[in-house]
């Protein structure tokens, strides 16, 4: 099994606002890297004396161990000048980077893991939604995902049916669009950017582009950290640690169609770093 496909992908490795000349030791797919600023003050990533390609986008520095064919994806909605852009900060999780993304694509866990915030046990039903791989962009998309939520966002006053769209534009990145309580008709954008340190360890960099005139940035950061840290205790306790790509090993239902599409898409592209192909 070759990791080349994943080595050619882009990964987040730090907040642009946090880069220093001294540099920070980090890791990418098992290789030691140093992330920081070079002598001219430009962001740079070093891997054993080799300068890696970089992109600055969405408040983060991105790099690749290989030679990416495609530019890093864009999020046109995030460019709206009235949006608040929120760097949530890094959280390390002892799990497969692919499991971290899959959890982000899942709404069925809201009543049990994010109880009374993103879901409640009296409203656990997941209705049918639409999943596709968009051919031109080569991205997994789920649309018309609806769920009852007691407190959908820091700005939400009470329970509402929230509509979601999910997008997987890169093997360890996911973008979700959700109903924006203060601005009907617009979408809040919440992203999970995952840096694979090893196959069973990752740094997760959540990032958001929201319409919210009432909450402070700190409130927004804390809301997202609250949600993500509730997930962390789940992610560190899944067995096996790697994401199984053998359909016989786990049991999806209709609610998991996004995850099924994501796993197939990973397999088709050989994005298998952090995956388990056959039962071990």
């Amino acid at each position: 099994m070759s990791d080349q496909a994943m080595r050619d992908a882009w990964f987040p490795v730090g907040l642009l606002s946090g880069l220093t000349r001294a540099g920070t030791a980090s890791m990418l797919m098992g290789e030691d890297i140093t992330v920081g600023l070079d002598d001219t003050g430009a962001p740079s990533v070093d891997c054993g004396g080799r300068k890696l390609p970089t992109v600055e986008r969405f408040g983060h520095l991105w790099t690749s161990l290989g030679a990416p064919e495609k530019d890093l994806f864009t999020i046109p909605e995030a460019d709206h000048p009235e949006r608040t852009l929120v760097d949530v900060g890094v959280v390390r999780v002892k799990c497969s980077p692919l499991r971290a993304v899959e959890n982000f694509l899942d709404i069925a866990h809201f009543p049990f893991v994010h109880t009374d915030i993103l879901g409640e046990e009296d409203h656990p039903e997941v209705n049918n939604y639409k999943v596709e791989v968009r051919k031109d962009e080569d991205e997994v998309w789920a649309t018309k995902v609806e769920f009852y939520q007691p407190q959908a966002a820091a700005s939400a006053g009470g329970g509402i049916i929230t509509e979601y769209m999910y997008r997987v534009p890169a093997p360890t990145c996911s973008v979700l669009y959700k109903t924006c309580p203060p601005r009907p008709g617009e979408w809040d954008v919440i992203c999970l950017f995952v840096q694979p340190l090893t196959e069973e360890l990752c740094d997760v960099w959540p990032w958001m582009a929201l319409f919210d005139d009432t909450s402070t940035i700190t409130d927004l950061i804390h809301f997202q950290q609250l949600i993500f840290l509730q997930d962390r205790s789940i992610l560190e306790n899944q067995i096996p640690k790697k994401l199984p790509l053998d359909p016989a090993l786990e049991t999806p239902t209709r609610a998991d169609l996004t995850s099924v599409a994501y796993r197939r898409w990973l397999k088709r592209h050989d994005y298998t770093y952090g995956a388990q192909l056959v039962a071990e």
Partner: peptide
């Protein structure tokens, strides 16, 4: 708090 789950069984069984 995040990382400490509630005891779901204490809520009425839906």
């Amino acid at each position: 708090m995040p990382g400490i789950h509630r005891l779901h069984e204490l809520a009425p069984d839906p």
